[in-house]
Design a protein around this nucleic acid. Sequence first.
DNA 1: TGTACATCAGTGAACGCGCGTTCACTGATGTAC
DNA 2: TGTACATCAGTGAACGCGCGTTCACTGATGTAC
Lengths: 222, 222
Amino acid sequence: MRRVRANPGEGALLRGEILRVAEELLAETGTEQALTLRAVAARAGVSTPSVYLHFSGKEALIEAVCLRAWDELAESMRLARADDPFARLARRGQAYARFALAHPTQYRVLLMRPADHRAAQACFDLMLETVRDCVEAGVLTGEPEKLATRMWAAIHGCVSLLIAQPGFPWPEEIDDFVTNVVRMAGFGTAVAERLPRRGVLPTPRLGPALDAACRTLTDHDR
Amino acid sequence: MRRVRANPGEGALLRGEILRVAEELLAETGTEQALTLRAVAARAGVSTPSVYLHFSGKEALIEAVCLRAWDELAESMRLARADDPFARLARRGQAYARFALAHPTQYRVLLMRPADHRAAQACFDLMLETVRDCVEAGVLTGEPEKLATRMWAAIHGCVSLLIAQPGFPWPEEIDDFVTNVVRMAGFGTAVAERLPRRGVLPTPRLGPALDAACRTLTDHDR
DNA sequence: TGTACATCAGTGAACGCGCGTTCACTGATGTAC
DNA sequence: TGTACATCAGTGAACGCGCGTTCACTGATGTAC
């Protein structure tokens, strides 16, 4: 249980172990308040004051954990690739959602705290970059910043509801949900952008014209 | 500063005052952990043990605060009316978003905690009911449960990002954002529902056919 | 090659704090006779 | 109409707990001479 002391020059090894254990405990306890330095030190097999050898305090430890989580999230999105820009957009959205659902507590802590701007920005930029590819390829129309923001909001809303309301009777499979949210964001934004802006929304009629448009959207791929 | 003691029979007055003060403090401090019984009692002008005359403990107090917040949220949605079902859907979505942005902390606590099922359900049912009206009127197509869930997720994602990432450079006005999210959810879901389900998303071509569809959507209202 | 010393990676005990909660009490108001 | 008593709406002081943090220390490893 007790950790063997590191040799001179290898003191930084404990830092990595503390980070690992802190992430583990965060996932188990669910909140950053339940994450105590005493528990972290105990699980790392070390005395409590040892944490101060590598982090200036509790706040610094949590910040380091969050930074690492953001990096992992960005990396999982970076790994999602596809030649087709729209498919890449969907894959990256799904990678985001999968990471969130796989690390629910970390995701919640990530987005509950006032975000570290650079880390969140890096993550958003991956989304934005792919949306830009779609716009350039003529697959989406509109301002990439707005498109990417709405898409991020939609996916975030989906996973954060799934995390926070696990008892709620969700009407469809998670994968389908995410797929549809991505499609919805992509197509719906394009449609919404072309409608006139006004105070009261008009009642739209979905009929033959929309059916025809959907056929066109599909035909390309047959 | 010190509260005058209630007359016999009016002891329950303090209960209401404690709830009010607790909500106030929750909005100021931002987290449920920062909400202490001592602070609540002090602001109510009463000694700490007095809280126990009306609530069995801290947990019960927070639960009562949350229940009240859910009720307020549902009420604000109930007040958003319009004859046209699609306009009603948009108005209710906007009411939801406005409540969330006006009470950011309460909203976060609301959706962070494992939700009280009945309260959340009542709120969701208002959404579902309006979506059903839209489907019956031929304005939306698809299963109302799925449509409503996606719409809720989209709006929730929008407001929770706005709350959690206030420093993030949002590319558009909040009202426009919400309006577009509602449109996006409405139109996009309809489009997505009509596309064939497959593992990899196809690249859609937005062109003349979609433009024609958008004209049709708009024509109805001219 | 031996030894004094420096450094490095920790430890043990303690401090002070604020918290939720308990418990014996108080004192004004109402009520039975 | 007076008085003993019950009830109701609280209070003050204290308990025990777990937490973040500090501080003087230890003892193995490396190094200069």
